[in-house]
């Protein structure tokens, strides 16, 4: 599909929502890179959308408007305590979520720190026992250094987690599905764009590690131009989390891709595409 253009029949099937998931995926991937086919599909989607107008008209309950306005933060519903209750419930759930996340993080960090202290004690005993063996001392010292670096990395990760949680709770954050370019790929990912903190996260799992000399590179398209948001690698478990700052002068993006580039990154997008973010081409919020 990637090399072939979409037929009118496929566009109609895509618009009406009748394609099988694998075919829909193939069309979606193609659309992300083909403006001509996007025009065809948009025409089909406009036609399909008119179906919705064939439904018998029903009047929604009068309280719906208050619900909508309250949820949009436009005005507080007067008599609709139920809506306020929902808002309080939502706020409560959010607070519980944050509290649980914080508590879990504290417990986890405490466990990690406790573990590190235990490791330090064991390490110290070994150092005491091996004072006369300089080679072993050097090796154990290196191990201690590694653990300290790991502790620092975990602390950074915990800070990053907190920033990500803040972003996920923000109304001004866009979370976009990421579509793998290869149909048989099991990789999944999300692009989190936090307009408040001016930060971007890309997270993915089941991502193969690149061989030496290659790296993953994240790009966003804004105003018709691709901007690099940096390079990243997957860990041995196939997990990747890349966090960066939104480049100066960019307030939003149209599409984003992840490519494979040479180690150190490329100044222009030229390597094969691994992931695509597709959320504007289709008439879908």
């Amino acid at each position: 599909m990637t090399g072939e253009h979409i037929t009118q029949e496929q566009a109609d099937e895509f618009a009406i929502g009748s394609l099988e998931p694998a075919s829909e995926h193939a069309v979606t991937v193609h659309l992300a890179e083909c403006p001509a086919c996007r025009d065809i599909v948009r025409d089909s989607e406009r036609l399909a959308a008119r179906f919705a107008m064939s439904s018998p008209l029903r009047r929604p309950p009068s309280h719906l408007k208050d619900r909508v306005l309250a949820a949009a933060g436009i005005r507080r519903p007067g008599p609709l305590r139920r809506v306020a209750g929902y808002a309080r419930t939502a706020a409560g759930i959010a607070a519980v979520f944050v509290a649980v996340a914080a508590f879990t993080g504290m417990v986890w960090m405490r466990g990690e720190m406790s573990g590190l202290r235990d490791d330090d004690e064991r390490l110290q005993r070994k150092i005491d026992e091996a004072l006369s063996q300089e080679v072993e001392i050097a090796a154990l010292t290196r191990k201690l250094d590694d653990q300290e670096k790991e502790a620092a990395r975990l602390a950074d990760a915990a800070t990053g987690d907190q920033d990500l949680i803040v972003a996920l709770l923000s109304n001004n954050t866009r979370i976009a599905d990421v579509v793998p370019a290869a149909e048989d790929s099991t990789s999944i990912g999300r692009l989190v764009w936090d307009g408040d903190q001016k930060r971007v996260w890309f997270v993915a799992s089941d991502l193969p590690q690149r061989p030496a000399g290659e790296t993953y590179q994240l790009w966003v398209n804004s105003g018709g131009k691709y901007y690099s948001l940096g390079t990243f690698a997957a860990d041995p478990d196939g997990f990747a989390r890349h966090q960066t700052i939104v480049p100066e002068g960019i307030t939003s993006y149209d599409t984003a891709v992840v490519t494979i580039e040479r180690a150190g990154g490329s100044p222009i997008r030229q390597g094969p595409t691994v992931f695509l973010v597709y959320d504007l081409s289709r008439l879908k919020d």
Binding site: E33, R38, N221, G223, K225, Y226, I268, R269
Partner: peptide, 8 residues
């Protein structure tokens, strides 16, 4: 871009 950019 070298692989074609979506329109803005």
């Amino acid at each position: 871009g070298p692989q074609g950019n979506p329109e803005t």
